[in-house]
């Protein structure tokens, strides 16, 4: 990245297939514009998002990690999002505890009907990440 370019945060977005990825699809169908910083990785369920995914993304140089799934009570897999909420709460607390900026990790509930919300979640996240600058605290040097 050259100096005159604006810093563009790199975000890895883990989206559950049934709600948030579908919501993201709806944002597309509705042509709702949002920044291109977040690259989606579709998972079956947020309940399947291992804490390792989040840690690994940061280690690989992500400026922010987003995990988005179905609203409580709406999980396609009955209760995966509840399991995710508990695990990822711990991840979030731990990251903040060691001094990683809280805005580096985000979780959201976006249903298949919430295309607008999905776009807003990404917009907000990217805007919150900008002032933090590149995440180099735990990014591994590539050898």
């Amino acid at each position: 990245m050259s100096d005159e370019q604006v810093y563009e945060p790199k975000v890895v977005a883990f989206l559950c297939k049934w709600c948030s990825s579908a919501g993201s699809d709806l944002a597309g169908v509705s042509r709702i514009q949002y920044p291109a910083n977040a690259t989606p990785i579709q998972v079956m369920c947020t309940g399947g998002v291992s804490p390792m995914y989040v840690l690994s993304a940061l280690r690989k140089g992500a400026d922010g990690v987003l995990v988005s799934g179905c609203h409580p009570g709406d999980c396609h897999y009955i209760e995966g999002n509840y399991l995710a909420r508990r695990k990822l709460h711990l991840v979030k607390e731990l990251l903040e505890f060691v001094g990683i900026e809280p805005n580096r990790f985000r979780m959201s509930w976006v249903s298949a009907a919430e295309g607008g919300k999905f776009a807003q979640v990404v917009r907000d996240f990217v805007e919150d990440l900008r002032p933090l600058g590149p995440q180099d605290k735990v990014k591994a040097d590539r050898s």
Partner: peptide, 8 residues
């Protein structure tokens, strides 16, 4: 195939 087992 939800993966809850895998993440746990």
């Amino acid at each position: 195939g939800c993966g809850a087992c895998s993440a746990t």
